[in-house]
Simulated assay, not measured.
Amino acid sequence: MEDKKKKFLYRILIVNLALLAVFVVLFSFYGPILAATIFENEIGLIAITIRILILGIMSFFLYRKWLRQEAIYISDAYFLFATFFGIFTWAKVYDMIYNPAVISGLFETEFILLLVKIRFFIIIANLMPILYIGLDAVLVYIDMTTNKDMKKKQFNKLRLRVILIFVLITISVIVLAPTLGFLNLVSPFITIVSFVSIAFMFLFMYKNKRLSQANGLIIGIAFICFIASSLIRTILISTNIYYSIIAEIIDIGVNLFMFTGFITKPKYAR
């Protein structure tokens, strides 16, 4: 088991080092071009840097918690939660290039459209670990409404099909999006529906006492708060780009609240 843990640890490190190398290259190439825009809002830069550090620490803590278990599987809640925060961390690093590139006006529309599409690909990837856990609600519902218990293997196949369909539909929409206007119109609908669905899944599992490693009530409420914070972010930034500092602070609060749900067991599991 220790060898297995070491292999997983090395793989996690390799993935993160590879991503670090990619972003170092991107920053070395685009950093000088976007430097003026990046440092124009120094407070916002500090806020997003703090958020990256907090998200990274959350991911590290959950990976550590996962690796300390006697038996580890990539389907474990702690691994999936850690991966969620890990992807989220790198998404915010990407935002340090994405946001200045969009604001600066130095690039052509086609390039900005590409950056926006990449950003939404990251969002979809970030949802996958949480969606994987959340779909357990489907199994709970099937058990409640039918006389036959669905076997775990059968349910896993169903879960993978649902995730595959979701990924194919969302990726197709993003890839085929012809303009920024179209993507900006469709993408909020996809993300809001996804967040609402995930929130409902966790609340449903909490109500039926089917999630023992985390507090589904807190997670469900946190995702609802995440929707609200996203709307607030949009309003603030559209009013004044410098209000992004307020948006980051709100998001940090939501992330901490969500993290509390990930590490807190519900009363029925204590």
Score class of each variant (00 low, 15 high):
Val254Met: 03
Phe23Tyr: 15
Ile14Arg: 06
Val175Ser: 04
Tyr242Arg: 09
Leu139Val: 08
Ile118Met: 09
Tyr30Arg: 02
Thr191Asp: 12
Phe166Gly: 06
Gly56Gln: 09
Ser238Arg: 13
Ile142Cys: 02
Leu185Val: 05
Thr170Pro: 00
Ile218Leu: 12
Thr260Pro: 00
Arg161Cys: 01
Ile163Met: 12
Gly261Arg: 10
Thr83Arg: 10
Asp3Cys: 04
Ser172Arg: 02
Phe107Trp: 03
Asp3Glu: 13
Pro129Glu: 03
Ser172Gln: 00
Thr234Leu: 14
Met205Asn: 00
Ser75Cys: 01
Ala137Asp: 09
Ile123Glu: 04
Met58Pro: 00
Ala82Asp: 02
Ala269Ser: 13
Lys265Gln: 03
Ala269Phe: 05
Tyr94Glu: 08
Leu45Asn: 06
Ile46Cys: 07
Val193Met: 05
Lys265Met: 05
Glu40Leu: 11
Phe79Arg: 03
Ala47His: 01
Ile50Asn: 06
Ser230Thr: 12
Asp251Asn: 11
Leu113His: 01
Leu139Lys: 15
Asn99His: 13
Pro32Phe: 08
Ile198Ala: 02
Phe223Val: 12
Thr109Val: 14
Ile245Asn: 10
Tyr242Cys: 04
Ile72Pro: 06
Gly31Trp: 03
Ala82Ile: 03
Ala71Ile: 13
Phe257Lys: 05
Arg161Asp: 06
Tyr63Thr: 03
Ala35Lys: 15
Arg64Asp: 04
Tyr10Asn: 09
Ile12Lys: 09
Phe226Lys: 06
Gly105Phe: 03
Leu139Asp: 11
Ala199Asp: 00
Thr191Ser: 11
Phe262His: 01
Ala199His: 05
Phe88Ser: 13
Ala137Asn: 08
Phe120Leu: 01
Phe121Trp: 12
Lys148Ala: 09
Met150His: 02
Leu26Tyr: 13
Ile245Pro: 05
Ile74Val: 13
Ile48His: 04
Ser194Ala: 14
Lys117Ile: 03
Tyr98Phe: 15
Tyr132Pro: 03
Thr146Gln: 14
Ser238Phe: 07
Thr191Ala: 07
Lys207Ile: 07
Ala101Asn: 05
Ile38His: 07
Phe81Val: 05
Pro32Lys: 03
Phe39Leu: 08
Ser28Ala: 10
Phe195Leu: 15
Tyr242Lys: 09
Val186Thr: 13
Glu2Met: 07
Thr109Phe: 01
Ile246Lys: 04
Asn255His: 08
Leu34Asp: 08
Asn215Pro: 06
Ala199Val: 12
Phe85Gln: 07
Leu62Trp: 11
Ile122Gly: 10
Ser172His: 03
Leu160Asn: 15
Ile237Val: 14
Val175His: 09
Phe23Leu: 08
Arg119Lys: 13
Asn16Arg: 07
Tyr94Pro: 02
Lys148Gly: 03
Leu114Glu: 11
Val140Leu: 07
Lys157Gln: 08
Leu45Met: 10
Lys153Val: 12
